[in-house]
Nucleic acid binder design. Structure first.
Length: 220
DNA sequence: GCGACAG
DNA sequence: ATCTTGTCGC
């Protein structure tokens, strides 16, 4: 798969993305993340953590390891991390009502960030929650936790810039699939604990690092 | 050609 | 993402 085909693939999948209000009540939320290891980062770890919502108690975790097959190219992150994350998600005992991603939803050059891509692929609601911007213009949100401003790209509101804690650098929230911006913001805010990153994503990130340490140490 | 550019 | 300890700021 080269970037030319990947681009065509994104343009086709984008047609299936649905930005609509959430109807079903959310009972559980999953967070996913990926990490690399090996001399050249030739192996990738995908992790998924499922939380009861809105209690935010951990229900289940899952992870998978695969060989890295696609390089990191801005705009094509889903081709690098999507496969292993999808497998990790399928390893969860229960199918999540919604899933949070460490990356963009529709706030993407072709409207198909990793959250939207995997959302369409698995047919589940997803939310993009990135730590930095890929596309779009915005004015910084207020300094208090919970304050947000709009992220606009090519004249369209594609997401929001959210202050997840007092002062810290804001998060870039955008709908992935089967949800709208209001719903995406509501869920992300509902997943915030004492850190900048929402609990499900933080848990997946920690799991990813834990597995990496175990993998680096001698097996037995 | 130059700068931008999720993880 | 990853390489990495102490350290400046709130």
């Amino acid at each position: 798969m080269d970037t030319k085909r990947a681009k065509k693939f994104q343009e086709e999948l984008k047609k299936k993305v649905r930005i609509v209000p959430l109807k079903k009540v959310i009972t559980c939320v999953a967070g996913v993340d990926a990490a690399f290891f090996g001399d050249k980062g030739e192996r990738i770890i995908g992790a998924a953590c499922l939380f009861r919502y809105p209690e935010l108690t951990l229900i289940d975790t899952s992870y998978r390891i695969k060989k890295t097959t696609f390089p990191y190219i801005p705009g094509y992150l889903s081709f690098r991390e999507g496969p292993v994350i999808t497998e990790a998600l399928k390893g969860l005992k229960k199918r999540p009502d919604i899933c949070l991603f460490d990356g963009q939803g529709i706030a993407h050059p072709r409207g198909l960030g990793i959250a939207s891509h995997i959302g369409v692929t698995l047919g589940i609601p997803t939310v993009g929650c990135a730590k930095s911007r890929l596309v779009g213009e915005y004015t910084g949100p207020g300094p208090k936790k919970g304050e947000s401003s709009l992220l606009v790209f090519e004249g369209r509101t594609v997401g929001a810039v959210l202050r997840s804690r007092d002062k810290v650098r804001p998060l870039f929230v955008s709908p992935g699939h089967r949800i709208d911006l209001e719903g995406a913001l509501r869920i992300v805010k509902g997943c915030l604990g004492r850190y900048r990153v929402p609990e499900p994503l933080r848990c997946a990130d920690l799991l990813t690092k834990k597995i990496k340490r175990e993998e680096a140490a001698p097996h037995s």
